[in-house]
Nucleic acid binder design. Structure first.
Lengths: 101, 101
DNA sequence: TTGGTTTATCGTAATATTGCAATCAATTAA
DNA sequence: TTAATTGATTGCAATATTACGATAAACCAA
């Protein structure tokens, strides 16, 4: 990222909050989280409900996995994606505590 | 943004959540919000507490103003920045309702 | 008036993000 | 085996973001 050179100037919690915020900072990723909240999906399931190409959706899934908001179960050639409910509520708590004080 | 061509494919609330998430998706902007939570500041006040040039801080302030998380009171040549506490708690509610269901 | 202070904006460069088509690897179906 | 399906990855282009210095506008102090 553009600020990687002065990463150390920010606190762990500032970095953490901004990292998850950035991860959900795209409408497609919000849409993916909402769809996965309803039920587990394969990548193709998601592609058919989003205005994006398969490779693009796969990329967004990768971003969400990177911050552990979702979980991919490998069943080749399929991957079953699901919400990581634990991480999900941790993020909820994290954002809440940021906005609380 | 890169997804502006298919903006209409997303719901208002998906766009809204992702927009505020993106606004707080940078550690400098998180730091600014935290500093403004403690007390109102001028741009220079913030510059002296951040590892960034004045023009960069001004740019971040503009982003935060764009989503109305902060408020700028013009007292030329100074501008007094403060949290927009109302918008702040609206964002809190917005994110909570997203994570709730 | 002149000089200092403050902050927004402009110009520019470096980097990151987003999106797609094409392809590859791994599996299943025929 | 051969063909089809699935999804990750690669390569690439377009655009957005981040950061800085320089500058301009608006005010105050001397």
């Amino acid at each position: 990222m553009g600020f990687s050179s002065s990463l150390s100037s920010y606190s762990i919690s500032q970095l953490e909050v901004s990292k998850v915020a950035r991860a959900i900072g795209h409408p497609a990723r919000i849409a993916i989280l909402e769809l996965l909240f309803k039920k587990d999906c394969t990548c193709n399931d998601l592609v058919s409900q989003l205005p994006l190409a398969q490779s693009t959706v796969s990329q967004h899934l990768k971003e969400l996995r990177k911050v552990r908001l979702i979980h991919g179960l490998d069943m080749p050639p399929k991957t079953i994606y699901s919400l990581n409910k634990q991480a999900y509520s941790q993020v909820q708590v994290l954002l809440n505590s940021f906005f609380q004080c």
